[in-house]
Design a protein around this nucleic acid. Structure first.
Length: 509
DNA sequence: CGGCTTTGACCTGCGC
DNA sequence: GCGCAGGTCAAAGCCG
């Protein structure tokens, strides 16, 4: 993973020095790249895919695939023309190939249209959900225990056990899960923070014997879901768009590197905290663990991260069906394939190294951004690097341990229509990924890059089709954006795009 | 001078 | 009850 950097002052190793801080979640640069691309839409659709990997990444989003495919085919026949006698035959062959390529071009265009329609539908769904949430406001609070799946709705996952006990049916098969469990979409949902819900919820009249269990659960030691992000960085802390204040540091057992404690200072009494620690096995890996939900509005750069981590935490709490999509969720931090793709390509989910952990007393999901997508799911699972917390199945809020398995569900045919049949948790994942998609202005660019790679036959040979490269800023040239801003995102995009590539590649065969 | 980091003390939960 | 480890507090010091 390429990590360009911009200098920030920080203390590292007991002395002040210029260090490189990685801005994983900035989106501004991505927009600038998009502008650059728009300004260079000259229609040179015949660029080969190799250019993508070399930083020459101006991609024609108009996808003039016919030219590329035909050119490839013609060049592929080099040396086969023996002389004038075979010219006629050669021309016929080329014409046939051209026709083939044309049909293939149309087919790919249809697929692209389908994807575009799906994207538009998801985007509208996302916007509607946002508007609905703004409209509903605090009135929903009184309804939550009976209507919302616990863990999907509550900003503070500590409330999940109590509510799940109070409304078990809704918890298990509810389909009203709101995707905006995070705090990134303007913060409107943040008004529903866990503490206020708890206060309101305890006054809900409809209680039976479940109420006693709920009360008991509420009194039990509170468990918070945490989202741990592993990323390679030389900086003491990744820049995620928020302002943090360090309030403590401890030596953790089994790790020579100290663990630093930060709390969000963007608003008074913001409950969000994070821990930053280097991996004991690999000190280049920075482990950042987020906990809690912001009670204020976030800048765009921080919004995506906050939304993603909150949604991941919510899915972690919501059970196995959702946890299956956690990797996909984080893969979509900037861009993600639609949920059905991940049903067909589960390795895309696993590629993110999403790991559930029983790191007591808090359930934790570890999202690994330290490695590139593998050649196969099996390879991935074998080569997953050690995580700071052990990967193991464990019961979460009443879900049996056996239900938590590695994120490799059986393949299912992807259909757009299946979106309507998704259960609440899958919908949560989908909507969250939709938000991620909509936050990435480079979606079409990345898609074009992926398709260009396929046309050039490089789907297998050139799996690295990061959107950062595709956007023409792979080396951070031009100073339009610190390349670090897209470093981690590029890895995530790679995974999503890899799934997309695989699907398109398979469809050609 | 305000904001931030540092760091030792303190609190809490858990296992024995 | 005791010890351990994780997490937090708060005073002191540093820095712009």
């Amino acid at each position: 993973m390429i990590l360009a950097a911009h200098g920030d002052r920080a203390t590292f190793g007991g002395r002040r020095s210029e260090i490189k801080e990685v801005d994983f979640f900035s989106t501004g640069g991505a927009r600038r790249r998009n502008v650059d691309e728009d300004g260079d839409d000259g229609g040179d659709g015949s660029r080969d895919a190799g250019a993508l990997g070399r930083g020459n990444t101006t991609v024609n989003t108009a996808l003039d695939l016919l030219t590329t495919a035909a050119g490839t085919s013609v060049n592929g026949g080099e040396g086969t023309a023996a002389g004038p006698a075979s010219d006629h035959k050669e021309v016929a062959t080329v014409e046939g190939e051209l026709r083939q390529a044309g049909e293939e071009n149309r087919r790919l265009r249809r697929m692209l249209d389908d994807l575009t329609r799906s994207y538009s539908a998801l985007y509208h769904q996302f916007v509607q959900a946002q508007q609905q949430q703004q409209a509903s406001g605090a009135a929903n609070l009184m309804m939550l225990p009976a209507t919302m799946p616990a863990g999907l709705q509550f900003m503070d996952p500590r409330m999940a056990p109590a509510i799940r006990a109070a409304a078990p049916a809704a918890s298990l098969d509810g389909d009203k899960g709101d995707s905006d469990v995070g705090s990134g979409s303007g913060g409107e949902a943040d008004q529903n923070n866990g503490r206020s819900v708890q206060q309101d919820g305890t006054g809900t009249p409809e209680r039976g014997e479940n109420a006693e269990r709920a009360a008991a659960a509420a009194e039990a030691p509170l468990r918070r879901a945490r989202v741990s992000v592993r990323a390679r960085s030389e900086a003491p802390m990744i820049s995620d768009g928020c302002q943090w204040r360090k309030y403590g540091q401890k030596m953790a057992k089994g790790n020579p590197c100290p663990r630093a404690y930060y709390r969000c200072t963007m608003a008074t009494a913001c409950p969000v905290r994070k821990q930053v620690q280097r991996c004991a096995e690999d000190k280049t890996v920075l482990i950042t663990t987020y906990e809690g939900t912001h009670n204020h509005q976030l800048p765009p750069a921080a919004a995506a991260m906050a939304k993603t981590t909150s949604a991941a935490a919510a899915m972690l709490l919501s059970g196995p069906a959702a946890s299956r999509d956690i990797g996909a969720l984080f893969a979509g931090h900037h861009i993600a394939a639609p949920a059905p793709l991940f049903h067909q390509y589960p390795y895309a989910s696993a590629a993110m190294g999403a790991t559930l952990s029983a790191s007591a007393p808090f359930p934790t999901i570890t999202l690994d951004l330290t490695h590139s997508p593998p050649a196969s799911a099996a390879g991935l699972l074998q080569h997953r690097p050690p995580t700071a917390v052990p990967a193991m199945p464990f019961p979460l809020y009443g879900f049996p341990a056996a239900a938590h398995r590695p994120a490799v569900p059986p393949p299912q045919p992807p259909t757009v229509s299946s979106l309507g049949m998704m259960d609440g948790r899958n919908r949560l994942a989908l909507e969250t990924m939709t938000a991620a998609i909509t936050s990435d202005p480079n979606f079409t660019t990345a898609l074009a890059a992926a398709l260009s790679t396929i046309i050039a036959g490089g789907a297998e040979a050139a799996p690295r089709v990061g959107a950062g490269d595709a956007a023409g800023d792979g080396n951070g040239s031009g100073g339009t954006e610190p390349a670090a801003a897209t470093a981690a995102a590029a890895g995530a995009r790679e995974t999503a795009l890899h799934a997309l590539l695989q699907r398109l590649h398979d469809s050609r065969q």
